[in-house]
Write a protein that binds this DNA or RNA. Structure first.
Length: 610
DNA sequence: CACCCGGAAGTTAC
DNA sequence: CGTAACTTCCGGGT
């Protein structure tokens, strides 16, 4: 009967709990109220094994099933402080399973769950699956990401995947919570597992009777064909699965009509977990009022997120990278000085979403010069950045004016970064930067396209009719797109100090000229400042002198003159003709020249600022 | 060592 | 097919 739904994706070898058996002992295949005292003990033992929790002293719950069912949650907590919640929930599921035998689950497909209520549920809210700590494990560690059923999944609100795992909070109750989580991750059928969820939900209405059928047990090699799902025990399964669905659905379906795509976003996922104290061992509010939350178990959270996204190799390192992308979108920021502590920058319910995910509120203002840049988000420790400067911008040079005009007219489009040519082997950004700088002199045109998004380089494809695009993917883009914006960078004839090169370098190196430091203040390049930026380069790091027309007076400007740099290098070192590799390589001296100009100005600004 | 940062490039779902 | 939102990897920092 309580055969558990197969599906362990992650199962470390050193599981401390029973990972082989997920079936409730046969003697417990009756309503808990009918359990004898001995059977209650059997159940407790089963729970401790199944949920990877420490053994429950029999004297803590020394009663028969009838008395057991009368225990309130608080009673459980009192008797078993560590895992009372878990046991209570598990018992409730057993109890409610019996009840729900008479109640088809078909209605669960809607956003509002009709799952039997758990005592600690808010009446008007769907039951959160996360409150159902039924954890099951199976011996099979096979990952079946390729087995995703292709049948329609109309009721599935979360990411499609076939299997997922989850850990009850109690499983991280050990000394090393992280390791505990990793080593005891078990499978909750249906949790975060929409694929099977749907199937089971669909089969539930026609297969209620299978609950008590021992033949319903499926082992770990469960076939994934929908037809086989019919033979699964469905009631509890469906309840839980639906509960899971509910948990990851938006609280307000009216504002999130697309319930079929919910909880695909990391911030949403985290927020959902935060809503449930059951997961406080993974992540909890540090200050709900201030929307500050703390990740208590980074590894566990990452595992869970990985399950949600069907990424079995998810780590906190990666998850945190995704979180860092939120900085610039003003969705989440790091709380400076507090490890594993972040803050929602706005009420999650107010976070606007793009077609597929969160975006800055004023997305149309983001692209190239908005205040929403990475430097602004370089840490909560940073005081609010000064972007209120209302200095009257100097007149623009014709070239810049043209560019500016183009930029203004293309804010809604995605900016395209110049080139991916001669990508250096390493990931050293300074080398990369330098190689780009070198490359640009070979071309007459550079195209940019404006837009927003995560601003990663992959979203900035090179588009220019006269540009050689070595990357395959870029070639494809080139064929299908036309650059909405052309920035003429006459680098061939005037590679060193033309205004356009300045722009290019700025955009190149920094993705965009986003902020600068001046008068002990960190200025964000907002609308009022961008003209000033372009024309005057008033930042100390982008000062006018650094683009002086007379390179002889500014030796540091060698960085902007690849040709000259190379010539100098050759004459100095005696090298005849530098190879491509050498062109891409940046020496320490060169790095020292170019970094302060193109990269480290951020650090300058921040350090002076702080 | 664990966490943090952000660039760069690849992946995936829509 | 294009893009948002990651994921993956990395070098470097605290």
């Amino acid at each position: 009967m309580f055969n558990i739904w197969p599906s362990t994706i992650y199962q470390p070898p050193q599981l401390s709990c029973n990972a082989q058996q997920t079936v409730l002992p046969a003697s417990l295949a009756k309503h808990p109220q009918q359990w004898t005292k001995h059977e209650v003990g059997v159940w407790l033992k089963w729970c401790s094994d199944e949920f990877c929790i420490e053994p429950i002293p029999p004297d803590r719950i020394d009663m028969n099933g009838k008395a057991l069912c009368l225990l309130k949650r608080s009673d459980f907590m009192e008797r078993i402080p560590k895992n009372g919640d878990l046991l209570f929930n598990a018992l409730q599921k057993l109890i409610q399973n019996k009840v729900s035998l008479t109640s088809p689950m078909s209605s669960m497909c809607s956003g509002g769950a009709t799952v039997p209520m758990s005592p600690f549920h808010i009446k008007t809210e769907p039951i959160s699956p996360l409150l159902h700590p039924l954890v099951f494990t199976s011996a099979n560690t096979q990952t079946t990401s390729m087995h995703a059923p292709s049948i329609p999944r109309p009721c599935v609100p979360i990411l499609p995947r076939t299997q997922s795992t989850i850990l009850p909070p109690s499983c991280s109750n050990s000394i090393n919570s992280n390791k505990s989580f990793s080593n005891t991750v078990s499978t909750v059928p249906g949790i975060l597992s929409p694929a099977s969820s749907t199937v089971d939900t669909e089969s539930a209405s026609s297969d209620n009777g299978s609950v008590s059928d021992p033949e319903g047990h499926e082992n770990d090699s469960r076939p994934t064909e929908p037809t086989n799902e019919r033979f699964l025990p469905t009631t509890i399964k469906t309840e839980i699965q639906h509960s899971i669905q509910s948990a990851f659905q938006p609280l307000n379906n009216n504002t999130r009509p697309d319930s079929g795509t919910e909880c695909r976003l990391l911030w949403e996922f985290i927020h959902q977990l935060l809503q449930n104290p059951m997961f406080s061992q993974l992540v909890c509010w540090e200050s709900e009022k201030e929307l500050i939350f703390r990740i208590n178990n980074p590894t566990g959270l990452a595992h869970m997120w990985g399950k949600q996204k069907n990424r079995t190799n998810m780590t906190y390192e990666k998850l945190s990278r995704a979180l860092r992308y939120y900085y610039r979108m003003n969705i989440i920021k790091k709380v400076s000085g507090k490890r594993l502590t972040y803050k929602f920058m706005q009420q999650p319910s107010t976070i606007q979403k793009g077609q597929r995910g969160a975006k800055p509120h004023n997305k149309c203002d983001i692209p190239l010069f908005s205040s929403s840049n990475r430097f602004q988000y370089s840490g909560l420790k940073d005081e609010p950045l000064e972007d209120k400067t209302q200095q009257k911008p100097p007149p623009l040079s014709p070239a810049i004016n043209e560019i500016h005009h183009e930029l203004e007219n293309h804010r809604h489009l995605k900016r395209q970064s110049p080139t991916d040519i001669s990508k250096p082997s390493g990931r050293n950004s300074s080398k990369y930067l330098q190689s780009k700088t070198l490359d640009i002199e070979n071309y007459e045109h550079t195209a940019y396209q404006l837009g927003n998004g995560d601003m990663s380089n992959s979203n900035f494809k090179q588009l220019s009719p006269n540009f050689h695009i070595p990357s395959t993917s870029y070639e494809k883009s080139k064929a299908s797109k036309l650059p909405p914006l052309m920035v003429r960078a006459n680098v061939t004839n005037d590679v060193k100090y033309s205004p356009d090169v300045k722009l290019n370098l700025g955009v190149y190196g920094m993705h965009s000229p986003l902020s600068f430091h001046q008068n002990n203040k960190h200025h964000v390049i907002n609308d009022s400042l961008k003209q000033q930026y372009f024309e005057g380069m008033t930042s100390p790091t982008f000062s006018r002198s650094q683009f002086n027309d007379d390179p002889q007076d500014e030796p540091e400007d060698l960085s902007f003159s690849p040709k000259k740099q190379r010539l100098d290098s050759e004459s100095n070192s005696g090298k005849m003709s530098p190879s491509d590799e050498e062109q891409q390589h940046i020496s320490k001296e060169e790095e020292n020249n170019i970094l302060p100009l193109l990269i480290n100005y951020k650090k300058t600004a921040i350090s002076t600022n702080s």
